Amino acid sequence: MSEQHLRDPDQPRRKGSVLVAGAGGVIGRHAADEYARQGWQVRGISRRPVQGAGWDHLSVDLSDPAASASGLAEAEDTTHLVFGAYAERPTSRELSEANVGLLRNTLDGLYSAGAPLRHVTLYMGGKAYGAHPGYFNTPAKERDPRLVQPNFYYDQEDLLRQTAAERGFDLTILRPEGVVGYAVGNPMNLLMVIAVYASICRELGQPLRFPGTIAAFDALYQVTDAGLLARATVWAGSDPQAAGEVFNITNGDQFRWRQLWPAFARHLGMDYAEPQPVPLADAMPQLKNVWERLVARHSLVPTPYEDLVGWEFGDFLLRSGFDNVSSTIKARQAGFTDCLDSEDRFLELFRELEADRIIPPVVLSSQSSERYVP
């Protein structure tokens, strides 16, 4: 916690100007919308142009130090930074170099602009606990020790804490899991993996089958609603109890896919059948023509198929055959008590996707029946 915060504990509660790095992603887009909804001045940075709900877009190449310094001069009044930018790389070393660079260039660009930065929110995923190589201790708690394996999240946190101590701002780190929500052209999105996969299966007259492994079908899993995470982000940047801390943020419940997929089938007007492992990254790109047919027939939002869904991302999550559970007790004790029923929220999000013409509408008929009851 910074000396500035200790001198004036009410200062972070004042509204200010928010900069959201990665505003084109599911997390960043919802965070920017939520801050704007609550009356903050908001600017969002993304690689592609994004139309925000009450916030302005900046085109800045955060991978370039000089471009960052030049582009962020316009954000000289920034008091809060929400950092959700991410660059994929093939090795852990390259991943760290790229993503630490994005964060460093953003912080340095704001510093060069003379921004009165008061708080930075940084996001981490399950890789912080070791979800990427396989099994990890559950329920995962924020106090769990780091892994010996190099991890770009650790490097980002070290940079952020060092910079915060030197420059006198506060920070909060949020750790969601399996974020579900919609953002245009953001393929790393579990919601869209399920929704598009199901829509294509329905169009082909096939029942809804879980395409992952049996182990993943039966394991405990959790998700984080993007709207809930956005509300946690505003809380983290405004409440003194969150300063300097790390919090797991999920919907607050756990489920097994075995319990949810029959409910998905009922909602989507489909028959349900036993799981059948299908490598989505191999099978689904070959069905691009089926999706394009649905887009044309139902006048759906014309998003390029390659930008619509990350099938490799879906394969990873739906083939993770181990319990993935994080404790959210620390966040509740600190004051963030928001929670959701994940099954109900998935169905609500499907309805929203249908209403916004992102996926085809559900047409229930006498041909749709619950022929399989697990």
Rank of each mutant, 00 (worst) to 15 (best):
V234C: 02
V234L: 13
A236D: 11
S238K: 11
D239L: 13
A243E: 13
A243S: 14
F247W: 13
N248Q: 08
G252P: 12
D253L: 00
D253R: 10
Q254N: 05
F255L: 07
R256Y: 05
W257L: 11
W261A: 01
P262M: 08
R266L: 12
G269N: 05
Y272E: 01
A273S: 02
P275C: 04
L280P: 10
L280V: 12
A281M: 07
A281P: 11
D282R: 15
A283R: 15
M284K: 03
L287P: 09
L287K: 10
K288C: 02
N289E: 11
N289T: 10
N289H: 14
V290N: 06
W291G: 01
E292R: 12
E292Y: 07
L294A: 03
L294F: 08
V295K: 13
V295G: 02
A296T: 09
A296G: 03
A296E: 10
H298Q: 04
H298S: 01
V301W: 04
V301T: 12
V301R: 03
T303Y: 02
T303D: 02
P304I: 06
P304S: 07
D307A: 08
G310K: 09
E312M: 00
L317T: 14
L318D: 07
R319P: 03
R319F: 00
S320R: 13
S320H: 12
G321V: 04
F322H: 15
F322A: 03
N324I: 15
S326I: 10
S327Y: 13
I329D: 15
A331C: 11
R332M: 14
Q333Y: 02
G335H: 11
G335F: 09
L340I: 13
D341F: 00
E343H: 06
